[in-house]
Design a protein around this nucleic acid. Structure first.
Lengths: 181, 181
DNA sequence: CCTCAAGACTTCAACAGTAAAGTTCGAGGC
DNA sequence: GCCTCGAACTTTACTGTTGAAGTCTTGAGG
C-alpha cells in the first residue's frame, strides 16, 4: 500500500523551469494551480495512510461517505452511487462486491421492484465511517493549523469562488475520476 | 474518454449533511477541504477534455511535462521519471511503450552504460507539450478570471502555507498517485 | 395476455496500475 | 579473470476500472 517516495523539484524551481521553457507563463496563476495540485495529492496520501490503519481504502471510504450523506437508513442503489462517485456501474458492482464481502454494506434486491438493488450500510460500515471521519477531521484541522480563523475563511471563500466558475463552465462534470489522476 | 455525468449535492448541502451526521465537524475547515477536493476534480476534468482534443491523455501529459522540466535535451531514465510521477517502474515501462508507439518519445539503451535506458522527447512530443501548455494556460487563466490580482496572490500564498505544512509532515510523499482517487 | 422497449444492474474482454520475481549489465573482491 | 552483488529496467500475476454486450424485470401497447 505504501509506495516509493515521490521526488519532485520544489514549487519555486518548477515554476522557474516552466518560465524558462514557456515564456508566456503567468507565474501567479501557475503558483495557484501548482499548489492546488500538489496540496490535493498530499492530502490524498494523508487520507490513504490514515484509512489504511482502519483497514479500508480511499475508494471504500468514498462509498461510506456517500451512503452516510444520504442520511438514515443509509441506502442507495448501485447506479446512484456510481453517478455520485463518477464511476461506471460496472466498477460499482465490483466495489460493492468487495465491501459486502468485508461486511461494510449489504446488497439486496428491492422486493418492491426487483430490477433495483439496494446497498445499505451495515453497523460495521457506519462505525468505520465514524472512525474514519474522526481521523479525517483531526488531519484536516492539523492541515490548517498555521492559518488563523480569518485566513481559513478567506481561503474557503476564494476557493468557492473559483469552484463556482468551473462548475458553471462544466455543469455536469462529465468524465470520470480516472480522468483525474 | 468522456464519461457519465457526476451528480453530487451542492457544497452547502453536503456540509449541512455532514453536520447533521457528525456534530463535531468544523464547517470552516470542511468548507476549505471540500472545495479543494471538488476544485481539483473539476480542473482535472477540464485538463482531460482539452488534452483529448490533442489526442493525448492526462497520463501522457504528465510525462511530457516532466521531460520538458528537465530542460534540453529533454532526456531522462524511466526510473527517474517514475520517481517524479510517483509511479512504479513497471507502470513507467508500459507508459513509455505506448508513448514511444505514438511517437511522442524515443526509448534507447544508453550506450555508455547498457543497464540504463534513455527516454527522450521527440519533436512531435515537444510540439504536443507546447500545444497542451497553451491550452492549459488559457484554461487556468480563465479559471481565475473572477479573482483580482491581489486575490490571486492571497490565494497562492495561503495554499503554499498549507502545502508547506503537509510537506513537512510528509517529507517523502510516500504512496503513489493511485492512492489518490 | 403477449410482446417488446427501456431501465438497472451484471458479465466480459481489454487496459493501466502494483508488487514481486526475473533479467541484464557493471563494478568489486578474491 | 571469474564470481557475486547491486542497480536499472522488464516480465508476470493480480487488482480495479472502462466500454460494450448480456440478463432480468417492469410497464406500455396491441
Amino acid at each position: 500500500m505504501t509506495g516509493p517516495a515521490i521526488q519532485e523539484p520544489s514549487l519555486d524551481e518548477q515554476i522557474a523551469a516552466y518560465q524558462r521553457e514557456y515564456g508566456d507563463l503567468d507565474p501567479q496563476v501557475e503558483k495557484v494551480v501548482s499548489a492546488l495540485g500538489r496540496l490535493n495529492r498530499r492530502m490524498n496520501v494523508g487520507y490513504g495512510r490514515q484509512l489504511a490503519t482502519l483497514g479500508i481504502t480511499n475508494a471504500e471510504w468514498e462509498v461510506l461517505k456517500t451512503l452516510v450523506l444520504a442520511g438514515a437508513p443509509y441506502r442507495m442503489g448501485p447506479g446512484e452511487l456510481a453517478k455520485r462517485l463518477g464511476l461506471t456501474p460496472a466498477a460499482m458492482t465490483h466495489r460493492i462486491d468487495r465491501m459486502a464481502g468485508e461486511g461494510l454494506v449489504t446488497r439486496d434486491r428491492d422486493e418492491s421492484n426487483r430490477v433495483r438493488v439496494i446497498v445499505e450500510l451495515t453497523d460495521e460500515g457506519r462505525t468505520k465511517w465514524l472512525e474514519a471521519m474522526r481521523m479525517a477531521s483531526d488531519f484536516e484541522g492539523d492541515l490548517l493549523q498555521d492559518l488563523s480563523a480569518d485566513e481559513r475563511g478567506v481561503l474557503g471563500e476564494l476557493l468557492i469562488r473559483v469552484l463556482r466558475r468551473v462548475e458553471d463552465a462544466q455543469p455536469d462534470a462529465g468524465g470520470r475520476l480516472s480522468d483525474l489522476d
